[in-house]
Simulated scan of single mutants.
Amino acid sequence: MRLLFLGDIMGRTGRTAVAEQLPGLRKAWQVDFVIANAENAAGGFGVTGAIAHSLFEAGVDCITTGNHAFDQKDDISFFDDEPRMLRPANFPRSNPGRGAGLYFTKDDRRVLVIQLHGQRFMNPMDDMIPALEREMSGMSLGHEADAIVVDVHAEATSEKYVIGHYMDGRVSLVCGSHTHVPTADVQVLPGGTAFQADAGMCGDYDSVIGMEKHAPIENMVSKIKSGRMVPASGEATICGIVVDTDDRTGLSTGAWAVRVGGRLAAAAPPAKG
């Protein structure tokens, strides 16, 4: 199976790039299942039901989120109504929605997606490990699920590596999101789990992590907030990771960073073997 995980979709430019290019990329790369983090898709803060459905129409199979999941407070009921929408599993259980979902490809292979929220340098949340084990209960790779993907939405690289090594051999992919900068550490861990500390973002990189650059520069120089942060509107780079899995075990047989368009150097997976 070939999986595609897209980093944080940032504002209009990011979601437009994904909507326009994903159908062609999915066909060209022969992708079987697409996960996208869309917690910044609505003006940089949260995601709406309308945006989510436009991404589903473009070919996204599951949307993950993170600390901005519920920023669009007037439009969060769809987290309960739409099973393809996830919020972190270690959010309070009273929150809308779910932290994991089991989905099916067009040929009925099963993909379990689990979303986690980091603890260091972020709003306090429950421990990731118990939440992860709860969502993994009764689910094993190569048996109840043909592929398992964990999105670790976290600030600290160390937390992402801990989850990667902790889950090595038990899941197909552990990929970080949140920092909007693609890391150069795409690898397959010793036990067969693909890993990247951060997939980056789908957004304009002539920016400060996706935001128009002048306001954050002025804020840092003057220490006075000079304006509202708004997403940069230049050409987006679509960033993410492609993973191939073994049909028998569900473990990764290869992993590649992907970067399409915009300012960053292009990268694409090889033809599907």
Rank of each mutant, 00 (worst) to 15 (best):
R2P: 09
F5A: 05
F5P: 13
G7Y: 08
D8H: 08
I9E: 14
M10V: 09
T13G: 01
T13M: 07
G14Y: 13
G14T: 12
T16Y: 02
A17E: 14
A17R: 13
A19F: 04
L22E: 09
L25N: 09
L25D: 13
L25S: 13
W29F: 08
Q30A: 14
F33Q: 00
A36D: 07
N40E: 03
A50D: 15
I51W: 14
S54T: 11
C62A: 14
I63F: 05
I63S: 08
T64L: 12
T64C: 12
T65E: 01
G66T: 00
D71S: 13
K73H: 11
D74H: 05
D75Y: 08
D75E: 11
I76M: 09
S77N: 09
S77D: 14
F79S: 01
D80F: 01
D80S: 03
D80T: 00
M85Y: 03
A89W: 00
F91Q: 10
F91C: 04
F91L: 11
P92H: 12
P92V: 01
G97N: 02
G99H: 00
A100H: 01
A100P: 13
K106Y: 03
R109P: 03
V111S: 00
V113C: 07
Q115K: 05
Q115V: 00
G118K: 13
P124C: 10
I129E: 02
P130T: 02
A131W: 06
L132Q: 04
L132T: 00
E133T: 06
E135K: 00
E135L: 00
G138R: 11
L141F: 13
A145R: 01
D146K: 08
V149C: 12
V150F: 01
D151L: 07
D151S: 07
V152D: 13
E155H: 14
H165R: 05
M167C: 15
M167P: 07
D168L: 09
G169I: 12
S172Y: 07
C175W: 06
C175H: 09
G176S: 09
G176Q: 07
G176Y: 07
H178P: 06
V181Q: 01
A184P: 01
A184I: 04
V186H: 05
P190H: 04
G191A: 05
G192R: 03
A194L: 02
D198Y: 05
D198K: 04
A199E: 10
M201A: 13
C202E: 06
Y205M: 06
E212A: 15
K213D: 03
V221I: 14
V221S: 00
S222V: 01
K223R: 12
I224Y: 07
R228Y: 07
V230I: 11
V230F: 02
E235P: 01
E235S: 12
A236M: 04
A236I: 04
A236K: 07
T237W: 08
I238E: 07
V243R: 01
T245M: 04
T245W: 05
T245I: 14
T249H: 10
T249F: 08
L251E: 03
S252A: 15
S252C: 14
T253F: 03
G254K: 12
G254C: 10
V258E: 15
A265I: 11
G273R: 14
